[in-house]
Simulated scan of single mutants.
Amino acid sequence: MAKLSKQDKIEIFNLWRNYNIRPKELGRRYGINSANIRYLLALIQCHGLAILDQPYTEYSLEFKKQAIIRVLVKHEPAYQVALDLGLKSNGMLHNWLSKYPKMGITSLSIRKD
C-alpha cells in the first residue's frame, strides 16, 4: 500500500468534494484501500484539513483506555470513536482493542464524576 503525502490527501479530498469521484476510484488511483479513503474523507469532514497538520502522536495509556471504554463499555461504534478522537486511521483503535490486556489495562470501569 502506498503512503499518502499531505498533498495527496488534500487532492483526494478535493477530487471527492468537487468532482464527486467515488472512494473506490480514488483508491485505485492512489493505490489505497477504498475503506481507508472513506475514513480519510470522513476525518477531514469532521476535523477539517487542519487534522493533516498534526505531527506523529504518542497516545497515553489513559487516552487509549478511555477510547476502549467508549467502545466496550459504552457501546459506541469504534469507527465513530476513532473519528471523534481524530485518530489518523481507523485501524489504530482496532489495534488497541485487540491488545488492551497486554497494555496493562486491567479494569474497564467507568468513573462516576
Score class of each variant (00 low, 15 high):
R29T: 12
R29D: 13
R29Q: 13
R29K: 15
Y30G: 03
Y30S: 05
G31A: 05
G31M: 11
G31T: 08
G31K: 10
G31N: 11
I32L: 15
I32D: 12
I32K: 15
I32R: 15
N33E: 14
N33P: 12
N33S: 14
N33H: 15
S34M: 04
S34A: 15
S34Y: 05
S34K: 08
A35W: 08
A35C: 09
A35Y: 06
A35N: 11
N36F: 13
N36P: 07
N36D: 14
N36T: 11
I37Q: 10
R38H: 11
R38W: 14
R38E: 14
Y39T: 04
Y39S: 11
L40K: 05
L40N: 06
L41V: 15
L41D: 10
L41M: 09
A42D: 15
A42R: 09
A42G: 04
L43G: 10
L43P: 07
L43N: 03
L43W: 08
L43Y: 00
I44L: 11
I44G: 07
Q45G: 08
Q45I: 02
Q45S: 12
C46E: 13
C46T: 13
C46K: 11
C46M: 08
C46H: 05
H47V: 14
H47A: 10
G48Q: 03
G48M: 05
G48H: 01
G48E: 04
G48K: 03
G48V: 07
L49T: 14
L49Q: 08
L49R: 00
L49C: 06
A50Q: 13
A50N: 11
I51E: 07
I51H: 00
L52P: 01
D53R: 09
D53K: 08
Q54S: 12
Q54R: 13
Q54P: 00
P55H: 06
P55T: 10
P55Y: 04
P55E: 03
Y56Q: 09
Y56T: 09
Y56I: 05
T57V: 15
T57N: 04
T57W: 07
T57C: 10
E58P: 00
Y59P: 01
Y59N: 04
Y59C: 01
Y59K: 07
Y59E: 09
Y59M: 05
Y59W: 14
S60G: 10
S60W: 03
S60N: 05
S60P: 07
L61T: 02
L61G: 02
L61R: 06
L61Y: 02
E62F: 00
E62N: 06
E62A: 08
F63Y: 12
F63P: 01
K64S: 03
K65V: 10
K65G: 08
K65T: 15
Q66H: 09
Q66C: 03
Q66E: 14
A67M: 08
A67P: 04
A67W: 07
A67S: 12
A67N: 06
A67V: 11
A67Y: 04
I68D: 01
I68H: 00
I68P: 03
I68F: 04
I68A: 02
I69Q: 02
I69G: 00
R70Y: 01
R70G: 05
V71D: 00
V71R: 02
V71K: 00
V71S: 01
L72P: 01
L72K: 02
L72N: 01
